[in-house]
């Protein structure tokens, strides 16, 4: 007891009365000691385990149903960010799963599919879409993916104008948005890798569009497809026709401009976007000219 008091008072005098002894704060520990994730869901909502499950399920369709064939897959960078740009077709477009599946299988690196925020707003579908690598197409999201995380991102600059076009318009590319994809690639300092896809137009051809029903249902477009006539509305929406899908990767387009600029010349952006559009269009015509039967390739 006594000794304790003496000790205490000497300690106090050593420090000087009233000194506030700064307590040593525990070192910041990022992640905290025992913190462990229960899932492998990344910040974008993508889960590699769910994705690989989806790939397992899709493998049959990829190999046997659509008999996918690639040309120039080696042009896709094995590391570093790149913006993959493709044409978009079929009422329920198969190009996104095919491209994502193919690249993930062959290059074993993830592909994030940028799509309209419409998907995100759908219950269940939106969550599954995000788990499978879908990301809302927002410039900030694309920039972060490409520049900071050096990932592959896939975008369809035609937007819904691609898949919603009638079968009579097949393989005729729509406007490439407002060139936003070029601007993002410039800002992120990554190349654009154009991909031309054929066969997808035949997987779910649109005969007519019912605009009034689209308005009522809130869907971006409401098509009556060949699949509907053959299989009815449920199966006809879920199942594509077994057209042979062929893809050609074109030469990556590098932009000789510095990244991280606030603005880029609009005329330059539009020119580059149009050049990419034309190169995909020409590749499509070339591939179609060499194609025999759409079902057998």
């Amino acid at each position: 007891m006594e000794a304790g008091i003496v000790e205490e008072s000497t300690a106090a005098s050593r420090l000087g009365a009233g000194t506030i002894v700064p307590l040593k704060r525990p070192e910041p520990q990022p992640g905290a000691p025992s913190a462990e994730r229960l899932t492998d869901i990344d910040e974008w909502g993508r889960s590699e385990s769910i994705r690989s499950l989806a790939r397992k399920g899709f493998q049959f369709f990829y190999d046997k149903y659509f008999r996918v064939e690639w040309e120039g897959l080696d042009k896709i960078p094995t590391e570093g960010g790149a913006l993959l740009v493709a044409n978009h077709a079929g009422a329920v477009p198969m190009d996104a799963p095919v491209i994502m599946h193919g690249i993930e299988q062959e290059l074993s690196r993830p592909v994030y599919g940028l799509a309209d925020h419409f998907f995100r707003q759908l219950p269940v579908v939106g969550t599954l879409w995000s788990r499978a690598g879908g990301v809302p197409a927002h410039p900030e999201n694309a920039y972060r993916l490409l520049r900071e995380q050096k990932q592959l991102a896939l975008v369809f600059p035609e937007g819904t104008k691609g898949p919603s076009k009638l079968f009579t318009q097949r393989y005729r590319l729509r406007r490439f948005g407002r060139g936003g994809f070029v601007e993002i690639a410039m800002r992120a300092g990554v190349p654009v890798v154009p991909i031309a896809v054929i066969g997808t137009e035949e997987t779910m051809p649109i005969l007519i569009r019912l605009n009034s029903l689209a308005k009522v249902t809130g869907l971006p477009y409401f098509p009556i497809t060949v699949n509907w006539l053959l299989m009815g509305p449920v199966l006809g929406t879920a199942l594509s026709l077994p057209a042979k899908i062929k893809l050609r990767v074109l030469d990556p387009v590098h932009f000789p401009v510095p990244p991280d600029q606030e603005r880029y010349s609009k005329s330059r952006v539009m020119d580059e976007a149009e050049n990419i559009r034309i190169s995909i269009q020409e590749a499509l015509y070339d591939m179609l000219a060499h194609r025999g039967n759409p079902w057998l390739g």
Partner: peptide, 12 residues
């Protein structure tokens, strides 16, 4: 909102 980016910085 559904139209948001994943990350907001101070100026978004």
């Amino acid at each position: 909102s559904g139209r948001d980016p994943l990350w907001f910085n101070e100026e978004t």
